[in-house]
Amino acid sequence: MDVTGAAAGGSGPLSAVVSEYYRNIDHRNVEAALSCFAPDAVYRRPGYDAFVGFQAISTFYHGVRVISRGRHDLESIVEDADTVAVRGSCRGTSHAGDPFAVRFADFWRFSGLLVVERNTYFDAAAV
């Protein structure tokens, strides 16, 4: 299921914020995508030190992230009181022009409607 549809279990307000994030990223609207992050948010992603604070997260997306363009297909979104869990896949192209395809899981924690913590996990050989 792509991000334009409602994935299983994700019908609450936090799931809507997360779905909009993926939609914006896929349309390369980084500023809109990042608008959901709190000023002191923390983002953990394999292969990097934690990005602490909105500025560090923004710097990652504007200059470090290897993905040039991609499409997220969300298989499942589960929402709890302050957490959203997402399972899906992403395929696209790197800035070097190399194609990629990866499965992922994201765990988002909120304060109100702002993301205060995000943890991404990839289904890729690492050990």
Rank of each mutant, 00 (worst) to 15 (best):
residue 67 I to Y: 01
residue 19 S to A: 11
residue 96 A to E: 13
residue 43 Y to Q: 09
residue 27 H to F: 09
residue 52 V to Y: 02
residue 10 G to K: 01
residue 95 H to D: 11
residue 41 A to H: 08
residue 78 V to T: 15
residue 30 V to E: 00
residue 100 F to E: 07
residue 104 F to D: 05
residue 25 I to Y: 07
residue 34 L to F: 05
residue 4 T to R: 12
residue 2 D to G: 01
residue 59 T to C: 01
residue 43 Y to N: 05
residue 48 Y to L: 10
residue 39 P to T: 06
residue 121 Y to R: 00
residue 8 A to K: 12
residue 64 V to L: 08
residue 12 G to N: 09
residue 85 A to Y: 14
residue 32 A to P: 00
residue 30 V to P: 00
residue 114 L to M: 12
residue 3 V to R: 09
residue 22 Y to K: 01
residue 117 E to M: 06
residue 51 F to D: 02
residue 107 F to L: 14
residue 51 F to H: 11
residue 74 L to R: 09
residue 115 V to L: 08
residue 57 I to G: 09
residue 109 R to F: 09
residue 66 V to C: 05
residue 126 A to T: 13
residue 112 G to I: 11
residue 72 H to M: 04
residue 25 I to M: 12
residue 45 R to G: 00
residue 85 A to L: 14
residue 7 A to Q: 09
residue 110 F to V: 05
residue 119 N to W: 05
residue 107 F to W: 10
residue 88 G to I: 10
residue 52 V to E: 15
residue 75 E to N: 10
residue 8 A to W: 02
residue 9 G to P: 02
residue 13 P to V: 13
residue 99 P to F: 06
residue 91 R to I: 00
residue 108 W to R: 09
residue 75 E to H: 11
residue 114 L to A: 11
residue 100 F to C: 03
residue 114 L to W: 09
residue 60 F to T: 03
residue 47 G to T: 06
residue 40 D to P: 02
residue 20 E to H: 13
residue 100 F to P: 07
residue 41 A to M: 04
residue 104 F to Y: 07
residue 120 T to L: 10
residue 88 G to R: 04
residue 68 S to T: 04
residue 88 G to F: 07
residue 33 A to W: 07
residue 38 A to S: 15
residue 5 G to P: 00
residue 94 S to D: 08
residue 53 G to M: 05
residue 23 R to N: 07
residue 65 R to G: 01
residue 123 D to G: 02
residue 36 C to K: 07
residue 38 A to W: 05
residue 105 A to S: 15
residue 95 H to Y: 13
